[in-house]
Design a protein around this nucleic acid. Sequence first.
DNA 1: TCATTTTTGATCAATAATAAGCAATGTTTG
DNA 2: CAAACATTGCTTATTATTGATCAAAAATGA
Lengths: 250, 250
Amino acid sequence: MLSAERYAKILQRLDEKKTVTVTELSQALNISESTIRRDLTSLDKEKKLKKIHGGASAIGGAYSVVDDEVTLRSNRFPEEKAKIGHRAASLIDNQDFVYIDAGTSTEAMIQFIQAPRAVFVTNGMDIATKLVRKGLRVIIIGGEIKPVTNAVVGIEAINGLQKYHFSKGFFGTNGIDYQAGFSTPDPNEAQVKREALIRCQKAFVLADPSKFNVMTPVSFAQLSEAQIITSKLLFEGYEKETKIMEVDKK
Amino acid sequence: MLSAERYAKILQRLDEKKTVTVTELSQALNISESTIRRDLTSLDKEKKLKKIHGGASAIGGAYSVVDDEVTLRSNRFPEEKAKIGHRAASLIDNQDFVYIDAGTSTEAMIQFIQAPRAVFVTNGMDIATKLVRKGLRVIIIGGEIKPVTNAVVGIEAINGLQKYHFSKGFFGTNGIDYQAGFSTPDPNEAQVKREALIRCQKAFVLADPSKFNVMTPVSFAQLSEAQIITSKLLFEGYEKETKIMEVDKK
DNA sequence: TCATTTTTGATCAATAATAAGCAATGTTTG
DNA sequence: CAAACATTGCTTATTATTGATCAAAAATGA
């Protein structure tokens, strides 16, 4: 196995798990511990990771700073989000021109994306950064950055979206409700979501079960306008309005 | 088989697989390993790939360990950059509408910015993130993200810039030269720089002393179009062409 | 604290990969 | 057309990488 391959695999593992052990890597890659240690030493020298006794830990930098903020928000139902993200990511293939909405639900998709030739558009700074780090082609929507979420919103973002036509789009939401449809608290964000959503041939909303039967101030789409990807459907009736994928089912 | 043909096939393979072995290429292209090695050596010299023991790895992309360019570059003259950045940041006040070009020189400004009411526009993802974290109002230019530098470049970025008129703009450069003026290696980046620069009432170029008397492929401005902020002016004559601030002076 | 266990880095032999030299073949140029 | 030049593949001496071994260092826990 080429050294670069090993480096990549080590870093990828580290990116997902934040720490790795020498033993674990040695077994996972079928490589002697000596070599793993040498690799870790090299990567440490290149500041790609921090070597610690027994293994290595992911390094700080802008990346982890971003992650701290995100971690706070995304710690609600992380396993749910990962499962939902995995399913959502599996829908993307190399021919797609994909919109990914800012947010932690959609962010959970990224690690699972397996379509190196797809092109991505997003209004999420963190999402854009992660996609780029994965080696994918990424276009960021221009406009003012909303502090807490690092999402690009506002009139410029909306204008910037108008030229695009996405084959698939993935969205987060704060509430799903029979009457209100999909909704979020921030009018600016809602507008951007709507503008992007109507430009998608297929739109998917990623939502953990806590989002159902919740209404927030501004609607950005009706239920029929997007399919829902969730882990487990706890309430009845939604499946009459739109297609729902339950990850836990079956 | 023509060498250019082989180069193309090798690079294509690399683009898809991120790493290739000499053996694999030799078999796939029906070419001796010697020739493959020679090809890899050439392509490595042209920075099209990174030669490693046993094969080659793609530059940039996911977990490539080849992006030392940026890491190394930002570590070059960090004190110089900080001093220059400090001086540059002191020029910004609350009334300003500021453009900050992507790059490590300009990134060094951010920590010193003392104008909470100024509004910032940038094409640098990392710069945007840092500015937001400082609590400032930030607008990101939309467009495709260039992997290694995380800068937004391309036609969309240029279009996105056209509506703005900045009171001040801060730029990085790869070379400063009497004839070539300010220049950088990447044509796309140069275009974006130029488009932004001509929209600034006052434009400043941040440059450590190593940048002087250096010419790189694409010019984005003449010396007279921007003031230079540097730590110590080692060459004479430049002060006739434009205003120069020397941080170390006095 | 000290003894036990785990991890580490250095060393080494085996293996794999490389660069350099060289002859044969193919390609330009006058 | 022939001479000069470049490219290719083969051989070989040199070099780099690997995994195993083991003493030293670090972590663990009583």
